[in-house]
Nucleic acid binder design. Structure first.
Lengths: 174, 174
DNA sequence: TTCACGTTTTAACTTAGGTTAATTTCAGCC
DNA sequence: GGCTGAAATTAACCTAAGTTAAAACGTGAA
């Protein structure tokens, strides 16, 4: 069974309005979600109230808060719907148990985790090796849809700079 | 069978002098390694000759170049021994095949990948949310051994700053 | 249409970190 | 003990990005 199939069989449908939170930093969470529809923003809230964007998650992707779900700790980030959304929700533990008896499912989990690790490695590379201007131009080239669906403020906080700085970069690179 | 056991059974021992490369950016690579002894530096070489440190890998850890090994692409980074080292080497493909028939092995792969993803997520957080001084102080608190085994130049390039900047930070935070 | 409010831009000033180069420190070696 | 070369520090100057605040722009509701 593949993951999408598994979630279809075992999952509960969740509907969210734009602006609604799926979970918040500090809460406990044990679920893994599959996004059927909508766009989400994962973000860290700093003690001083500043917000930094960890990632954007669109349709046909998984969402989970790894440390919360694996380590049974408080969520390290918050997750908010930027558009009206529909997801399927399953308990991570139950899914993980099923991988114990189902080699195919286990394989799909492996694939998903490899993909996740590669994505994170990519982002690590960008922060370590590229300057803000290059990160912006790359994002613009590779996810032009995002720039349309998301405010420039959020794009800036995803790139690790302030909205003011992003506005300047856009101006300079025109 | 767990991964260490698997590698012990199927792996080939590799010895390296300090300064020797395990693989280089741009080469093809199909192996996964287990570090028995030594310390490694994974680094990106920029077109302008600048070097940025992706990670340090010490004893009792796995090493692999995910994109190279999974996507059959050129290595995205180089891997060099900072100390005389001994590793066990297995083909990634073969291991991955074995996970198809061995649930326990599959589980151990899952655990390893979850850990990897969590590590990467952690580093992403540090680049996104913390300034260089905080990143340095945190590294110093959490991996004091590293600061002893690695030159300050390499620590700086791991933190994403120049050696000059790190020296300044040390001076200021004393 | 207009108002209100959030988003984006612009400007002026500050700060962290980069760059280059000179100097000091230190470890290994003769 | 003195020499060598790498590593680390220091200094002077430069640039990217942060901060604060004001102005301009857009969009949706009344």
């Amino acid at each position: 069974m593949d993951i999408k199939q598994y979630i279809k069989n075992h999952g509960r449908i969740v509907q969210l309005d734009a602006g609604a939170h799926l979970f918040r930093q500090g809460e406990l969470e044990d679920a893994l979600y599959w996004v059927n529809q909508g766009l989400f923003k994962a973000y860290y809230l700093q003690p001083d109230g500043k917000e930094l964007v960890k990632s954007f998650i669109a349709e046909q992707n998984m969402i989970t808060n790894l440390s919360a779900v694996v380590g049974r700790q408080a969520c390290t980030f918050s997750l908010v719907a930027l558009e009206p959304a529909e997801l399927a929700k399953v308990r991570f533990d139950t899914l993980f148990e099923h991988t114990l008896n189902d080699l195919e499912l286990s394989r799909f989990m492996l694939d998903a985790l490899i993909q996740l690790a590669q994505k994170k490695e990519r982002r690590e590379y960008e922060f370590l090796c590229l300057d803000a201007t290059t990160r912006y131009l790359q994002l613009k080239a590779e996810r032009p849809d995002l720039l349309r669906r998301v405010t420039q403020n959020d794009i800036a906080r995803y790139l690790g700079i302030t909205p003011v700085a992003l506005s300047r970069i856009k101006h300079a690179s025109r």
